[in-house]
């Protein structure tokens, strides 16, 4: 058994008196999608920031490929092949797909004494990489603003993979998307796994997570509520674990009560 790509051992993080994370353990193997689930305020963001090198944990250890690691900055994490795709995606809508793909890492070409952009290479590469991810571009020079939400997400992911990511951290990649758009992104997650990458899929949408996840870790109020393999847990069990089964049952009961009282107050009126 090879060592996990990345592993957190009993990691804690405090912000003043607030316990953001308490003794959370988490690991990711190559070729797996590990979903990190939790409601708002569960500590997902803190965990992402520790994984991506923004925060340094106060307690616990980070291991990369079995070796203890200490990330000084997001740049360092990126250099070790751990790429985070945040919700804002770091895309410039008015610029072309290819220019976005290579922004900050532009391919250059020598022309006598002058160095200039290798636009052809950028266009070809961006187009090919996206095609290999299942995104058919009409034109690599079309502005990113003309892409759909799902396509933009895929562009950001494809870019991370192209520049050597072995671990992808996806922060709510489907949360702002409709069903069809979300399915494009979910396919890409599966594609990344097939390429041998490890994917950390952060979401509060159990339905999306359950489609692609191999393992699920549930965060609740800064603590881990356990890690489950897909074979050991059903979607409903996961949903209950995450939202708190009792809360959901209570909510259902309350909604039922509200709708009955509303319908009793409603009087039949003329049809307009």
């Amino acid at each position: 058994m090879t060592a996990p790509l990345i592993e957190l051992q009993r990691v804690s993080k405090y912000f003043g008196t607030v316990i953001a994370l308490k003794e959370v353990s988490f690991d990711l193997k190559a070729g797996e999608v590990h979903c990190l689930l939790g409601d708002n305020g569960a500590g997902k963001s803190t965990l992402i920031k520790i994984l991506s090198g923004v925060h340094v944990p106060d307690e616990g250890a980070i291991l990369v490929a079995g070796e203890p690691a200490r990330f000084g900055s997001p740049r360092e994490t990126l250099d070790r092949g751990i790429a985070t795709v945040y919700q804002d995606l770091a895309l410039v809508p008015l610029m072309s797909v290819a220019r976005n793909f290579f922004l900050g890492r532009e391919p250059m070409r020598r022309l006598g004494p002058i160095r200039q952009l290798d636009i052809d290479y950028a266009n070809r590469t961006a187009w090919r990489e996206l095609r290999d991810m299942g995104i058919e571009l009409r034109d690599p020079e079309q502005p990113v603003g003309t892409l759909s939400g799902g396509e933009r997400q895929c562009l950001a992911i494809a870019r991370a993979i192209h520049f050597g990511a072995k671990v992808l951290i996806l922060d709510e990649p489907t949360s702002a998307l409709g069903v069809h758009q979300a399915s494009i992104v979910l396919k890409l997650v599966v594609e990344s796994r097939a390429r041998g990458l490890g994917v950390i899929f952060i979401s509060h949408n159990v339905h999306h997570a359950y489609v692609v996840g191999d393992r699920f870790t549930i965060l609740k109020r800064g603590r881990s509520a356990g890690t489950y393999a897909r074979s050991d847990i059903s979607r409903d069990q996961l949903l209950h674990l995450m939202a708190g089964g009792k809360e959901l049952v209570d909510l259902e009961a309350e909604i039922a009560r509200l709708s009955t009282s509303a319908s009793s107050r409603r009087k039949p009126g003329p049809i307009q």
Partner: peptide
């Protein structure tokens, strides 16, 4: 249109934050 600096000009005006996050 043909230099890295030009790409950075578009990015700085288009979405400065995204550009910064990508190391521009």
């Amino acid at each position: 249109t043909r230099t890295r600096f030009g790409n950075w000009i578009f990015a700085a005006g288009g979405e400065a934050n995204a550009a910064r996050n990508l190391g521009v």
